[in-house]
Design a protein around this nucleic acid. Structure first.
Lengths: 231, 231
DNA sequence: ATATACTGTGTATTTATTACACTAAGTAAT
DNA sequence: ATTACTTAGTGTAATAAATACACAGTATAT
């Protein structure tokens, strides 16, 4: 019965909002486009999806090709489908986000020449972006701002070992407000998902703080049974 | 610069998971398809999006055409894009959900004949569905289950006037667990978004319960400043 | 009058949230 | 070695929210 139906073709894209935290600033990954439309513009890493790849795979591939970043787990957060969003016609885009630690990932090398380069840009200093990418970014930022309020996902942005003060600063940057030091520490330690290390911060010109690690197992256990209503 | 670029064409669809609450049961809207592929199958109300409509508008139009329901506010919740999900080729689908009260909406009349009929089916009694619609439903259900845990959205499902017991039953059905009567009432009344009416339930063979109304304004005020981390 | 079925209510306990300020420890400069 | 500087690290009291738990009251039906 399916044999006589016409085959459909689709053109749609993926765009990625990749957050990183560096030098006390929240940043996202941008590329400089090397092709029309919007040649020479800054844009989110994004491209058309192939006919034979799932959107999740496409997201991984595209991020890799445009930035050189591999094995980044991304979550879909919204699909943008306004009629006029793409100058070449009807192209909807599925937006993904990820939060990653960028210790070794400062040297970004696109592997296609569709992107001239890929760069971390502070979110408070974003240029005008191609297409509706500014709106996509805003929504993505909103997404992590909401999510961090009920799930301690901020660890993904930090180096493996971090101090509580660094963690707090990250929260403050994402939530855009000051937090109380004692209450913040109490709350975080109460989650029971931090491992205190026997190490201290190095290279600071003042008393070094203790380093902590994030305990993935306990985190997983905790946030399975989360989001409950209680009895 | 854009003049010389080829025009793209897209084929993609919208699917709607519309929740209703009736006779103590949570239900969703299904249609019986009258066209290939999956002719004669049960499916979520869904169809292809036109070239010249935004996806939000398409969602409204499609729901209307397939069920006769108008002016239903829906939210996008996920986009499904597995390669093999549509037998005619690559068709991704943007899924929307809504929670509605179905007092006057029991008589559903599709206005195209793509849908033979539209029917409310209890979610515990769903037939096999076309395409990947079972998965889409599951995700949609998960979505409202999560959402209700931090936002009292259940009112949208109830008649305008309802008793606290009815509200509690609805929560219990969505969350799939028993709640404590006194604690539930305390919590709901504490939100301050319920208006106690001077009316009582009618037609019951026992003491009638007070009726309540949902106060939209207070709700809006309350859930603007929600989702905060505190100081 | 009686049985039935659901309504409506309070309190004590535990847990989480908030507000708030000083001393201790290490580094750098002299 | 003293001093100045900068951040680390800590506790408590007050308030608010979540939980556990049981029974008398009221409308209806017979």
């Amino acid at each position: 019965m399916e044999l006589f139906l016409p085959k459909f073709n689709s053109v749609f894209s993926i765009d990625c909002v990749i957050f990183g935290f560096d030098e006390g600033e929240l940043k996202i990954l941008l590329i400089e486009r090397n092709e029309d439309p919007f040649k020479d513009w800054w844009a989110l890493p994004g491209y058309l999806v192939g006919q034979d790849e799932s959107i999740d795979n496409a997201a991984e591939r595209i991020l890799y090709e445009l930035t050189g970043l591999r094995d980044i787990y991304m979550d879909q957060f919204y699909t943008f489908g306004d009629v006029g969003r793409h100058p070449q016609g009807r192209v909807i885009t599925v937006a993904y986000y990820a939060m990653i630690r960028l210790n070794g990932t400062k040297d970004l090398k696109p592997v296609t020449n569709f992107a001239r380069k890929a760069v971390w840009i502070p979110i408070n200093d974003l240029p005008k972006l191609a297409f509706d990418h500014s709106e996509i970014f805003s929504r993505g930022f909103e997404k992590i701002r909401n999510k961090i309020s009920y799930q301690p996902i901020a660890f993904e942005l930090l180096p493996e070992k971090f101090t509580l003060t660094q963690l707090q600063h990250l929260y403050e940057v994402i939530l855009n407000k000051k937090l109380d030091k004692r209450n913040f520490r109490k709350k975080m330690l109460n989650y029971g998902i931090l491992k205190e290390l026997d190490e201290k911060q190095k290279g600071v010109s003042y008393r070094a703080a203790k380093l902590y690690k994030f305990d993935k197992r306990k985190y997983a256990r905790l946030f399975q049974k989360e989001l409950t209503f209680g009895k």
